[in-house]
């Protein structure tokens, strides 16, 4: 039983939700057997993704009416701090952040950017909820121990869960006819992203 089992967006996504929140990569993070090259690949590609998500969220915050905007703006601050954290993590490991963007990561980033400009704010709220809820669910399934404990805690701690809950309230309170299609689109990209980090 996950915390989103009663979310209409999650329920209507069907098996996509499971596919987006479980992966061989995550299992290997959980039991500490992840090959270092897979972790490095994930770190660099996720940095590119976080950069695109920052653009998406900035545009989404601007399009969202004042009464719904606060969680998005607070989330933008956290996202920027996360970019600093990614940069520090990659420096420690001697990784280059200007490495080419993988085609799977690029597809996800393009999906977010085009949606940010083309779609109305209720759809953008569904997209943001999808991105963060699937991430929370994916990392929350892992024991917060082992060599990757810092990473697991980062996306499964109560403050992050509280932020995702606020996004859920906004997304479900502002449904649009395209919300489900875009929510499902996020989950399909999440699924492909996890496969890419594992398989290269």
């Amino acid at each position: 039983m996950s915390r989103f089992d009663d979310s209409p967006l999650v329920l209507r996504a069907g098996r996509l939700w499971q596919e987006a929140t479980t992966a061989a990569f995550l299992d290997a993070i959980g039991d500490g057997t992840l090959p270092p090259e897979a972790f490095s690949r994930w770190l660099v590609q996720d940095y590119h993704f976080a950069d695109a998500l920052t653009s998406f969220q900035g545009i989404a915050a601007g399009k969202t009416p004042r009464q719904f905007r606060k969680p998005l703006i607070a989330g933008l601050g956290a996202l920027d701090a996360e970019m600093d954290w990614f940069e520090a993590q990659t420096r420690v490991r001697g990784l280059k952040l200007n490495a080419p963007v993988h085609e799977i990561c690029r597809r996800y980033c393009d999906f977010l950017i085009q949606a940010a400009y083309s779609e109305p704010y209720p759809v953008l709220l569904a997209v943001l909820f999808g991105v963060e809820a699937s991430y929370l669910a994916a990392w929350s399934g892992l024991p917060p121990t082992g060599p990757y404990a810092e990473f697991i805690d980062r996306w499964s701690n109560p403050r992050f869960a509280e932020y995702v809950e606020s996004l859920r309230v906004l997304a479900e309170g502002n449904l649009h006819e395209s919300s489900q299609r875009y929510f499902d689109g996020v989950l399909a990209h999440e699924r492909d992203f996890w496969s890419m980090t594992w398989e290269g």
Binding site: R107, D110, F111, I113, Q114, Y117
Partner: peptide, 17 residues
Amino acid sequence: YRAVEAYTDFLLATAWH
């Protein structure tokens, strides 16, 4: 198809952004 949508997402993301 997904390959087609990847292409159109790329075009729109580029044209807007």
